[in-house]
Simulated assay, not measured.
Amino acid sequence: MSEPDSISTVHRIAEAVTEAVRDGRLAPGQRLTEADFASRHGVSRSSVREAFRRLTADGLLAFEPNRGVTVRILSRREIDNLFAVRGALEALAVRLSLPALKAAPERLLALLAEMDRAVADNDMPAFSTANAAFHALFAEVADNPLLSETLTRLSNSIYWLQFRMLVDRRQVFDSHAEHRRIVEAILAGDAAAAEEAMRTHVDGSRKLVQQLPDSHFAG
C-alpha cells in the first residue's frame, strides 16, 4: 500500500470511529479492538492502530493498561475545562470572522434556516449536522489555520459527541435561539455582542452536560 493510500485509510478509520461515537453506537468506556475494526473495514491492523493512536492524542479515545483502547470518559472538572477553552476559542472565531460574514452573510443565513427547519421538524440528526456546520463556518472564515486546527481537535474530543444523544432533546432545540442572537449581532456588526452570545451558547451546552447523572463521568 502506498503512503498516500495509508494516510487516507487511517483518516477513514478515524472518521468511522468518530461518527460511531457521535451517533451513540460507541459509548463512553466501551473497549475497541484492532482486529474488529480491521475486519469490519477491510484494512490492516496497522492502519487501525494508527487511527486509534491519533484519536487518543485528540482525546476521544484512551489507552488503559489491561483494557487496551476505550472510548474516553471525562470527569466533570475536565468537562468544565474543555468547555471553557472551547467557549473562548469559538468567541475568538466569531470576532475574526465577523467582518467577512457581515459583508457576505448568505452561508450563515442558510445554515440558520436549516436549523430552523430541523427544529420545526423535530429532526435531531439534521439539526446536529447544520449546527456543526454553523460552528465550523466561523473558524473557516476567520482564516486562521491554528485556530481552525485547535477547534477541530476539540470537536474530535469528547466535547459534544458523546453527550448529544443523552441530553434532553427539547433543551438542545431550545438552544437554537442562541444561534439567532449570534447571527443578529454579526449582521449588526457588534463584535462584543456576538462574542458574548457565543460564550453564552457554549456555556449552555456545558450546563446541559453537567445535568447528567454521575454515572456518565469519570470519578
Results as ranks from 00 to 15, higher is better:
Arg40Trp: 08
Leu111Thr: 00
Ala194Asp: 05
Ala177Tyr: 06
Pro213Trp: 15
Leu32Asp: 09
Ala194His: 05
His176Val: 07
Arg206Met: 12
Ala118Tyr: 03
His135Tyr: 03
Phe37Thr: 06
Asn66Glu: 15
Val202Phe: 05
Arg181Lys: 12
Ser155Thr: 11
Met115Ile: 11
Ala14Glu: 07
Glu195Arg: 09
Gln162Trp: 12
Pro105Ala: 09
Gln211Gly: 07
Thr9Tyr: 03
Ala139Asn: 05
Ala14Ile: 07
Asp190Pro: 01
Asp23Val: 08
Leu111Val: 00
Arg164Val: 08
Asp168Phe: 02
Ala27Pro: 00
Leu112Cys: 07
Trp160Lys: 08
Pro28Gly: 03
Arg40Met: 11
Arg31Thr: 15
Gly59Arg: 00
Met124Asp: 00
Pro28Met: 10
Asn81Glu: 14
Arg76Tyr: 15
Arg153His: 14
Glu196Tyr: 03
Pro125Gly: 12
Arg76Leu: 13
Ala177Leu: 11
Thr129Arg: 08
Glu19Ala: 15
Arg181Glu: 14
Ala191Ile: 01
Ala38Gly: 09
Pro65Tyr: 14
Val85Glu: 04
Ala100Gly: 03
Met198Asn: 03
Thr70Phe: 03
Glu50Ala: 15
Leu208Glu: 09
His216Phe: 14
Thr9Gln: 09
Ser39Phe: 08
Ala197Pro: 02
Ala192Pro: 00
Leu108Tyr: 01
His135Arg: 02
Leu109Ile: 06
Asp36Glu: 15
Ala51Trp: 03
Ala193Arg: 06
Glu140Ile: 08
Glu149Cys: 09
Arg40Ile: 04
Glu64Ile: 10
Thr56Trp: 01
Ala57Tyr: 11
Arg199Leu: 12
Ala130Asn: 05
Ser75Ala: 15
Asn81Cys: 08
Asn156Cys: 06
Ser157Asn: 06
Ser8Gln: 12
Asp203Lys: 13
Ala110Arg: 12
His176Trp: 04
Pro145Gln: 13
Arg12Trp: 05
Ala16Ser: 11
Val141Pro: 03
Leu109Tyr: 06
Ser215Pro: 01
Phe173Tyr: 13
Ala113Ile: 02
Ala120Asp: 13
Asp121Ser: 11
Glu114Gly: 11
Asp190Ile: 09
Ser205Asn: 13
Val43Glu: 02
Arg77Asp: 14
Val43Thr: 06
Arg53Ala: 15
Leu32Asn: 03
Thr152Pro: 00
Asp80Lys: 15
Asn131Leu: 05
Val209Gln: 01
Glu106His: 13
Ala113Val: 01
Asp214Pro: 02
Gln30Phe: 04
Arg54Ala: 13
Gly59Tyr: 03
Val183Phe: 03
Ala132Trp: 03
Thr200Ser: 13
Ala193Tyr: 04
Ala91Pro: 00
Pro28His: 11
Asn131Cys: 07
Glu140Asp: 12
